[in-house]
Every structure is written in structure tokens, then in C-alpha cells.
Design a protein around this nucleic acid. Structure first.
Lengths: 150, 150
DNA sequence: TATTTTTTGTTGCAATTGCAATAAACATAC
DNA sequence: GTATGTTTATTGCAATTGCAACAAAAAATA
């Protein structure tokens, strides 16, 4: 059986580790860059959706976002039509840091794909999307307390 | 620019999250399964190499392994020729749990690859290995305190 | 309309995580 | 053979992480 889980785990941990080290320069602590870029790209998104998007626990997202708020990278705005939700927006400070995150991510992406042809990259990207869609079904299933049968 | 970092991050977090939830049944806490399977496959491996293999911080590996030892899943043995290193071996208890970890991982792998043809799977696997080799160079570089230039 | 269920958010723990700093054993160089 | 550097392991912090448990608003159902 061909195994892809380990390769994916290794790549993800290595990339995350690199990013976390490099973003300390901007006073972003572990994992925060994940949330900030997505809030910049999806202004007004709520915390619950962000957690689903990133695939982290809801409470982990809650605390990361709280800290981004306290440190002035983002702000939470109440919705006039829905008292339950808090929409997330980048502040000026957040918008200023965002390009550096994007540049770092693009650089890591370039390094990761070194030696791959344009066709191979497109192929890899498409396959990964399919894998992600497959696995997110189970993730939500298990996260909700259900038990997989195997 | 085609982006693969996010897909890989999402897949890795989802898979890790699922595994951590499922392995609580065996009293394995967060991340420990990563170390145990590899010690079973590479009996006698030392902690430093294991950290490199998994791509986590040396001190994180040290503590995960310490706990696996304390909980009786593995044991550390001194080397008669080298007083510095401690070789890692699974205990009987560790060997008994290992098949369950492998079965879970195989199941997740199957789910992840659902809908992909044999050829696509081989292709994906090969591409991921190349990506991993690319990125581990930078990981070791940055981990050692060097600064990437971009 | 009233009741129940789902969505969204928070906080209390108890654990993992990882950067610094330390120490000891080994390896290399002179 | 000593000095210097590298490998390997550990511990002190300070932070993130995530399961439980809770609360309140909204949506769905009866």
C-alpha cells in the first residue's frame, strides 16, 4: 500500500516550523499567521468558519484570534442583524504585516516545488485538493464525536 | 502562482486531529503515535534522528519519548560503545498497540486516496517525496538558526 | 407561539510545544 | 594529547493546544 500520510505530515510540520520561526520577527506567535492571512482575504469571516477552513479546534481558533485582536492585528465587529456572531477584520497593522506573510509563503511554495514542471505542479495541486476534500469529511465526522468504523 | 502549502496544511491538521482523537482509546496522548510507530519500525533509533525524521523540535521529541517511556510503551537502552546516546526500543505493550496505529493510519490513507486511480496515487506519492526533500533542506537550515534570503 | 436543536462564542484545566540554556560525551584539528 | 567543535540529551519557562463544560442567540420543528 502506497503511503502518503507521512510525507504530508513531514512537509506540513517542516513548513509550519519554518514559518513560525520567520514570523517571530513580526511579533506573530505560533500559528497566528494562518488566521491573519485568511482574515485579510475574507474580511468579515467569523471565527467558526475560520476554524473549519484551517482545520483546527474551535477553541484553539478562538484563542489565536483573541490574541491577534489583543495585539492589534485584527478587530472583531458585531453584526447588527445577528448578535451571536463577531465578524473579523484586519486592522491597518494587520494589513501591513500581511504582505510579508504572503511573500514568505510564496517563497516556501517556490522552494517546495523546485524541480517540478508546470504540468507536475498543476497535477499535484489537483490531486491534493481531492485528497483534502476526502479527508475533511472524516475530520468533521470525528470532530463531532462520531466513531469511524474500520 | 499555484499554491500547495495550504492544502498540505489542511490535510495534515485534519489527519493528525483524527488520529489524536482515535488514539486516546489506547492512552496515547497528542502526537505520541508518530514516535511509537517509527520506533517499532526502527528499533534502536536514537531520539535525535527520530526528531529529524518526524520533523519536530528536538526538545519536543525528547518529552514525547520520555512520556512513552514512563507509560511503558518504549524503553531506552544505553549503548556500551557510546555513553552519549540512548537507543529506543518498543516494549511488549508498545508492540501490542502498534498494529492498531498502523490499521488506523492505513484506513485514513485509504479514505484520503478515495477516487484516485492507482496511477494517480503513485504519481502523487512520487511528487510528495520530491516536495519533502526540497523543503527539509530549508527546515534544517532555518532550524540551525540560519536566515533564508527572499 | 412554544419547544427543541443547532450555531457561535467563551473559559477552566491539563497537557503538549518549542526557544534558551545547560551539560556531558564524542569527534576533529592542531 | 590537549583544545575546540559537534552531537546528544535534559530542564526551565512561557506559550499554544484542545477536550469539557458552559452560555446565549438563532434556527428549526412541533
Amino acid at each position: 500500500m502506497i503511503e502518503i500520510l507521512r510525507e504530508i505530515g513531514m512537509i506540513a510540520r517542516a513548513l509550519d516550523s519554518i514559518s513560525n520561526i520567520e514570523f517571530k520577527e513580526f511579533d506573530l506567535t505560533k500559528g497566528q499567521y494562518l488566521y491573519l492571512v485568511r482574515i485579510c482575504e475574507n474580511p468579515g469571516i467569523i471565527q467558526e468558519k475560520l476554524a473549519e477552513m484551517i482545520k483546527v479546534d474551535r477553541t484553539t481558533a478562538a484563542r489565536a484570534i483573541k490574541k491577534l485582536d489583543m495585539n492589534g492585528f485584527i478587530e472583531k465587529k458585531e453584526d447588527p442583524h445577528n448578535k451571536k456572531i463577531k465578524k473579523l477584520f484586519p486592522t491597518d497593522k494587520g494589513e501591513r504585516v500581511n504582505p510579508f506573510i504572503k511573500r514568505e509563503n510564496e517563497y516556501s511554495n517556490t522552494i517546495a516545488l523546485e524541480g517540478l514542471s508546470e504540468g507536475e505542479i498543476e497535477n499535484l495541486s489537483g490531486l491534493l485538493q481531492r485528497v483534502r476534500k476526502n479527508i475533511e469529511v472524516d475530520w468533521e465526522f470525528v470532530k463531532k464525536g462520531n466513531k469511524r468504523n474500520y
